[in-house]
Design a protein around this nucleic acid. Structure first.
Length: 295
DNA sequence: ATCCAGGAAT
DNA sequence: ATTCCGGGAT
């Protein structure tokens, strides 16, 4: 495998074509990088941008966020989805304030110990905020490696092997390695996309095993299928959260149960109860008297 | 219908 | 190892 070829070509391409995202500014704080990584979990760049800007304006440090109630984080999260991330980010801010003197740690294990920080986010922060040399593997990078290196149409299930694959491609210097991690993600996000890869503009098309072998239909069949969103409990939860964000203060339980139900559909009272119960369990909703509010 | 800068709970 | 968790875009 042409290890240095892929890294050299992708890094050169990245220097020309990378989107000018604010969290890639070399002067940005580690906290700003951490916030971006939380928001970018399962959420595209375009949707994150405005919320990230507002968030950093309001909470420029971990301690600033920790000083506000978690419900304010949930409200500012707006419609980014997976609102537990907002709760987790607030909790991580508390932990950073209490355990690390208001400074985001650079150590992988210290990062992994933070609420809501997993294998991807820990390495992303250590690499992009602190310039350390680690393999950073997200869904884009897994697909790029699956195609370019393994000659497969798509990546399989996430595995520990993914980190080893990326580590083998990583340039030696920390600076070049950090750029390459970002470049592999960027390529997957805007060129080597899941549905319609734009191989005509790909900087490593000549090195790509999948292209070289004629685009075989060899995608792994293991991938779990996502449940439909329409009519789901997740949709009902989303409606409850939207009602709570829109309200100034507490909302009557009956009003929230009504909000959980579609405006037009017949309504599923059991599902509405389930939604509120699970939100209470997650800590996204708390009880005050006979009403409910954000934490 | 499928995908998305994932992580936690089980 | 599976399941759950939003919501927007294609």
């Amino acid at each position: 495998m042409d290890r240095t070829g892929i890294a050299d070509e992708l890094n050169a391409w990245f220097s020309r074509e990378a989107r000018p995202l604010p969290w890639r500014d070399p002067e940005i704080s580690p906290w700003a990088v951490l916030v971006s990584e939380f928001m970018l979990q399962q959420t595209q760049v375009e949707r994150v941008l405005p919320r990230w800007v507002a968030w950093m304006e309001r909470w420029p440090t971990p301690s600033a966020l920790a000083a506000d109630p978690p419900g304010e984080a949930v409200r500012a999260w707006d419609r980014l989805g997976y609102p537990r991330r907002a709760l987790w980010l607030h909790q991580a801010a508390v932990e950073i304030t209490e355990r690390h003197g208001d400074q985001v740690p650079s150590d992988i294990d210290a990062l992994l110990a933070l609420t809501g920080v997993g294998p991807y986010t820990a390495r992303a922060v250590a690499t992009f905020a602190f310039g350390e040399r680690h393999p950073v593997v997200d869904t884009n990078t897994r697909r790029v490696i699956a195609r370019a290196v393994h000659g497969r149409a798509a990546a399989g299930m996430p595995a520990a092997r993914d980190l080893d694959d990326m580590a083998e491609l990583l340039p030696n210097t920390p600076a070049a390695a950090a750029v390459f991690n970002a470049a592999a993600m960027e390529l997957g996000a805007i060129v080597c996309t899941a549905r319609a890869p734009r191989c005509g503009v790909c900087p490593i098309a000549q090195l790509c095993e999948w292209r070289g072998s004629g685009y075989p239909e060899n995608a792994p069949t293991k991938r779990p299928k996502q449940a439909r969103f329409e009519g789901s409990d997740r949709q009902a939860r989303g409606r409850v959260m939207a009602a709570l964000r829109a309200a100034e203060g507490p909302v009557a339980r009956a009003e929230l149960l009504a909000a959980a139900v579609s405006d037009v559909g017949p309504g599923d009272s059991a599902q509405a109860e389930r939604a509120v119960a699970s939100l209470l369990s997650d800590g996204l909703v708390v009880v005050t008297g006979d009403a409910l509010r954000l934490p």
